[in-house]
Amino acid sequence: MATTWTQQTLNHLRRTRAWKSIFRRGPARTNRTRSLAIFGNIFLHVLPVKVREKSLRLRATYYLGSFSFFLFVVLTVTGVLLMFYYHPAVPEAYRDMKDLRFVVANGVFLRNLHRLAAQVMVAAVFWHMFHVFFRGGYKPPHEFNWVVGVGLLLVTLFLSYTGYLLPWDQLAFWAITVGTNIISYVPILGHPIRFLLLGGNIIGENALLRFYVLHCVILPLAAVILIAVHFWRIQKDGGLTVREDHERKG
């Protein structure tokens, strides 16, 4: 291969001390280095080194799991950007929504994307769950991953629910009223759970703050941990769309 000028500079760069300190292995040319590139990278190591071609087909998974994850990333990014403008306090919350709409550049888009992504994500995770169920992806040895998936579903729903209150408008307020009143009907523990959620007996500043902390810190952390376990489990169990009979057929 004729070495172009760019390739020559790149080669020089690769031989510097700084480069070698950051990127430990050479270019991924051999299968071994390719494996190590994935395996030895903190960001990428949760992904499998090798995948079956069949699992990359659309009809295999409809990319539903990846799509849900993609939406989660979108939500996190838009969510963090929204956090710059939002005060989780009672008069400011609604006014900040107004500010996002009227003052902040691209505020409308940011908020709408966050809301849209949340609603699509709920649909996507449900679809993903149904799809996995009908494809038998819960069968041994994947039972635990199914449980983790259900946990993720609950975290998604709860994230949606806590996020709903944050605009502090009539829709939010009454939706949370209805929801927490339903919770209070749980026998024995109903009222304590409601009290814990709302930080009191009424839906006021405490409720808003609690829901905010749940929505922005606790639940995303839980989600990240569960996602990591979910991905790891898939990888360790041999990747997507592996069936015993396929395995045998090879």
Partner: peptide, 29 residues
């Protein structure tokens, strides 16, 4: 590796679409 062409194409198109969607906002702004 052997990433099928169809897949690569699909990925390219969906990325372009996504960026297009993102570009709507500054224009509307």
């Amino acid at each position: 590796g052997k990433i099928p062409k169809r897949l690569r194409r699909a990925f390219a198109i969906s990325s372009v679409l996504f960026l297009g969607v993102l570009a709507v906002s500054p224009v509307k702004d």
